[in-house]
């Protein structure tokens, strides 16, 4: 089992560095290109949420990323020291379900544009776990299984 760590400042211009690091690991794990794209998107969204919500801005704290190559899956662990995050407090996005221009669905006039990052994580990863410890550390674990491709 391989195990690698990257620590960077919580800034938007660091996200591509984090994503490159994680997708290299996903490739080593043997994920196919579609699954690697899913890992890339979910890692991007997680780091964006840390900067926007946990830290409330750039250069407030660090983001630590680690990954593990498991026998049947790719596991990434993303940590920060920002505000505790409770995913249960984030309602699922109200997504449109009928064709555009239909007067029947008023949600289309105000399509939901918040909470999408968490929605992608839940849809594209096989496991998503958030935790917060007494030391003030948020930990997000996301697992993408090999071959079967999870919910995607």
């Amino acid at each position: 089992m391989a195990n690698t760590v990257l620590t960077v400042p919580g800034r938007y211009d660091q996200i591509q560095k984090i994503v490159a690091f994680v997708t290299q690991g996903a490739r080593e794990a043997g994920l196919d290109e579609d699954a690697i794209f899913h890992v890339e998107l979910c890692c991007d969204e997680a780091c964006t949420n840390i900067i926007e919500h946990a830290y409330g801005g750039e250069d407030v704290g660090m983001i630590r990323v680690r990954y593990e190559l498991l026998a049947d899956a790719f596991k990434m662990i993303i940590q920060d020291n920002g505000r505790p995050f409770d995913p249960d407090q984030v309602p699922p996005p109200s997504l449109p379900t009928v064709p555009a221009n239909s007067a029947a669905d008023s949600t289309l006039s105000q399509p939901q544009i918040g909470g999408l990052g968490l929605h992608f994580m839940r849809k594209l990863m096989d496991e998503v776990q958030f935790s917060f410890n007494a030391g003030g550390e948020n930990t997000l674990i996301m697992i993408k299984k090999l071959a079967t491709g999870g919910n995607s």
Binding site: L95, P111, F120
Partner: peptide
């Protein structure tokens, strides 16, 4: 991605 969030209907 668009289909996953319903924006292909927006």
């Amino acid at each position: 991605i668009f289909g996953m969030v319903g924006f292909d209907r927006v």
